[in-house]
Simulated assay, not measured.
Amino acid sequence: MATAEIAQKLDSELHSPIVELRRYTLHPGRRDDLISLFDTHFLESQELCGMEIIGQLRDIDDPDAFVWLRGFDDMQARHHALTAFYDGPVWAAHRNAANDTMIDSDDVLLLRPVGRDAGFSLPHERSGRVSGEPSHAIIEAATYGLKTSAEGFLAFYDEVLSPLLRAAGNHAIATFASEHSPNTFTRLPVRLGENVVVVFSRFDSAGDQAAFRDLLDANPAWQAVQPRLATYLIAPPIIARLAPTARSLLR
């Protein structure tokens, strides 16, 4: 199937064909303040503007990092939804409180699913503001910065890396590559001119994720493919261990 046909099929079948992966660096001790603002004010209000808030996550290795994802039907829909929210009353009322928690909010990747079933499968409803309980799951985000476009790397990943990862206990839940369309909402910067693949995996607990990594690192076959993997990359993969917040759909 031609690339254009695949893209059209993805657009018609996937829930969020365009996804922002946003990583914020926060002032020390302010992460829970920002999560509280999200839980109380920024989830339903953004979704009413036409986007989906996929997940809010704590980086368990960085107490001052907050990671979240939101999805859109297409780039034009992204422009309309973000304009509606950032020109709207909820953001106007709470933007100072939110911005006061942040040192940097410009680490943003614009992504597109790379296969028919590569997007997130999410519940239809999120936990309530009071009743939500944190998930014990760990969402691992592996970001591969590529020297060239994603096609060759994805073939290598599917044929060589993925079987080794699965054998060690990895359960991939979504795979994305860079979306290179122009930024349709220039008030919020995104990282342009990069080629990345981001693979999200889910583990039932931090212990399960750690056991997977230990088993993988001890596998001679995994070590043997590292030189070939390095030929595709500009730097070693970035592996983030992320804990869903109480109201995260991704959990």
Rank of each mutant, 00 (worst) to 15 (best):
residue 243 A to H: 12
residue 66 F to A: 09
residue 26 L to N: 04
residue 186 T to N: 15
residue 42 F to W: 03
residue 141 A to P: 05
residue 155 A to F: 05
residue 106 D to L: 04
residue 169 G to A: 05
residue 195 N to S: 10
residue 21 L to M: 09
residue 228 R to D: 11
residue 1 M to R: 11
residue 36 S to Q: 01
residue 11 D to E: 12
residue 251 R to D: 12
residue 245 T to M: 06
residue 64 D to P: 14
residue 199 V to K: 02
residue 80 H to T: 01
residue 99 N to K: 15
residue 205 S to H: 11
residue 57 L to I: 02
residue 138 I to K: 00
residue 218 A to I: 00
residue 145 G to Q: 08
residue 6 I to L: 09
residue 163 P to V: 00
residue 169 G to D: 02
residue 153 F to M: 03
residue 106 D to I: 05
residue 15 H to N: 10
residue 71 G to K: 03
residue 189 P to G: 14
residue 203 F to K: 01
residue 230 A to M: 10
residue 106 D to K: 11
residue 27 H to Q: 07
residue 99 N to D: 15
residue 167 A to E: 13
residue 241 R to K: 14
residue 109 L to T: 14
residue 108 V to L: 03
residue 107 D to Q: 11
residue 116 R to H: 15
residue 7 A to I: 13
residue 111 L to A: 00
residue 250 L to M: 12
residue 11 D to M: 06
residue 92 A to E: 13
residue 116 R to C: 08
residue 58 R to F: 14
residue 171 H to E: 13
residue 141 A to K: 02
residue 187 R to C: 13
residue 173 I to D: 04
residue 9 K to C: 01
residue 108 V to W: 05
residue 192 L to W: 07
residue 185 F to N: 05
residue 177 A to M: 04
residue 33 D to P: 00
residue 31 R to K: 12
residue 152 G to T: 00
residue 50 G to Y: 03
residue 245 T to E: 04
residue 11 D to V: 01
residue 32 D to H: 11
residue 186 T to S: 15
residue 152 G to K: 11
residue 23 R to S: 02
residue 23 R to K: 11
residue 180 H to N: 07
residue 97 A to N: 15
residue 85 F to P: 00
residue 37 L to G: 04
residue 154 L to C: 06
residue 43 L to D: 01
residue 239 I to H: 06
residue 136 H to W: 01
residue 83 T to D: 14
residue 239 I to G: 02
residue 144 Y to M: 00
residue 150 A to Q: 05
residue 244 P to R: 04
residue 25 T to L: 06
residue 86 Y to G: 07
residue 224 A to F: 13
residue 154 L to I: 10
residue 111 L to T: 01
residue 154 L to F: 08
residue 31 R to N: 06
residue 20 E to D: 08
residue 175 T to R: 04
residue 80 H to C: 04
residue 187 R to K: 15
residue 195 N to L: 02
residue 47 E to T: 13
residue 164 L to D: 10
residue 64 D to V: 06
residue 10 L to Y: 05
residue 203 F to S: 00
residue 202 R to G: 02
residue 166 R to I: 09
residue 165 L to Y: 13
residue 244 P to T: 08
residue 133 E to R: 12
residue 50 G to L: 02
residue 226 Q to K: 10
residue 184 T to S: 15
residue 68 W to L: 07
residue 239 I to P: 01
residue 178 S to C: 10
residue 114 V to C: 15
residue 249 L to Y: 07
residue 202 R to S: 06
residue 236 P to F: 10
residue 36 S to E: 03
residue 198 V to M: 12
residue 9 K to V: 05
residue 172 A to L: 09
residue 185 F to T: 10
residue 26 L to Q: 05
residue 198 V to R: 07
residue 210 A to I: 03
residue 20 E to T: 02
residue 9 K to E: 03
residue 251 R to C: 08
residue 74 D to C: 11
residue 48 L to A: 13
residue 102 M to E: 08
residue 70 R to Y: 04
residue 49 C to D: 01
residue 36 S to F: 02
residue 76 Q to W: 08
residue 14 L to K: 07
residue 104 D to H: 11
residue 142 A to R: 12
residue 44 E to Q: 10
